[in-house]
Design a binder for these strands. Structure first.
Lengths: 195, 195
DNA sequence: GTCGGATGTAAACGCCTGTTGACTAATTTC
DNA sequence: GAAATTAGTCAACAGGCGTTTACATCCGAC
């Protein structure tokens, strides 16, 4: 047997980059930017620390990459919903249907690094989402009240995501999709129903 | 004139403690625990760094003190409301009627230091508030659905507070009490109205 | 007035942070 | 298969962190 069960690690820059990105998203989302060290991330990824600087030029750069990759992933999954599907989509994100029940993509949008460029990406994404959501509810440019309501909806959803992920407040902490769909639907329809 | 406009600083431990506490609450709430340094806090308070260790024994200790003092203040202002007043009270906190439009007490409840004891205080407070709110809506022990709805309400409110305070997402960022009262009332009554 | 505890100061401590440069090892190119 | 390019390693760095220690200064009690 030349190499059967050996966990040989072929050198692969793309794969390494991805490992770092995944580990970083976990850490940044759950611990925040400042509390996360590059050594933590590298260890989680099973990769040498210096490679963070090589592939992302800095910790800030890695954070920005996390942000844009999460944003891309959200765009991909959140496109083209009807108003009555919005609650369902949000709950899917909250309950983390794709990963392990941890709404990382959402929580990242609340994590600031203090860096101006990263914050622009973050806030830009929030603004885009808010406008998209407002449009579904019949928004036209200049209607600040409805835009505000869309932003409140997003803020509320992010709050739920954050509280779920950083405290073990029960029953919210371990509520599943079926538990959340009721309250969240009520919340969203109540706010977005045009006054 | 012996001492007219002179800003002489009489030595006063109580006052110094309070200055540190105020500065720390500002910093911890707006930047988070890890991103805040003890030197930042001391400078803001106009006080020597070493006094943090003296009066609060550590940065953790200061954070705990911030938490309990904020919790006390919230208890004082949040006691004995009726269900139909809840939205108004929350909006008052969100709009920061007492201070400068920054809902620090609320945001602190979302800021984790990673320390176990501090997190217990934090989560304990959240639990208490959730139960109090649920009770106003007719909760009796064991009714997990209504408790969940109360927790969702709190999570949503905290999300609004956090988004308001750390992004400049307009119009949410600079919305006043009169702008928020509508959406927030809708939100709260929709979630808490027993299904 | 002076003594003693309380209050504030300054400098240093050891540790951990993000980042870098010189190096080795693997992979691709010809 | 040798050369050249890419991928990964290792150790050190300068700076900032929270904390401590030894010292100056103020203030109230006697």
């Amino acid at each position: 047997m030349t190499s059967s069960s050996a966990p040989i690690k072929r050198r692969d820059a793309t794969r390494t980059r991805q490992l770092l990105l995944d580990a970083a998203r976990h850490r940044f989302a759950s611990d925040g930017y400042a509390a996360t060290t590059v050594r933590d991330i590298a260890d989680d990824a099973g990769v040498n620390v210096a490679l963070i600087s090589r592939y992302f030029s800095s910790k800030e750069g890695l954070f920005e990459a996390c942000l844009t990759s999460s944003v891309d992933e959200m765009r991909r999954t959140a496109g083209g919903a009807r108003l009555d599907e919005v609650a369902e989509r949000i709950v899917e994100q909250l309950a983390g249907i794709d990963s392990d029940g941890f709404p990382r993509h959402l929580v990242l949008l609340l994590r600031s690094s203090g860096d101006a460029r990263a914050d622009e990406i973050r806030v830009g994404m929030l603004r885009t989402f808010a406008e998209k959501l407002a449009s579904l509810a019949g928004w036209t440019e200049g209607d600040d009240e409805l835009l505000l309501r869309a932003q409140v909806t997003i803020a509320a959803s992010l709050g739920i995501a954050l509280l779920r992920s950083n405290t073990r407040l029960e029953p919210l902490g371990s509520a599943g999709r079926e538990d959340l769909i009721g309250p969240v639907t009520d919340l969203i329809t109540a706010i977005l129903r045009k006054p």
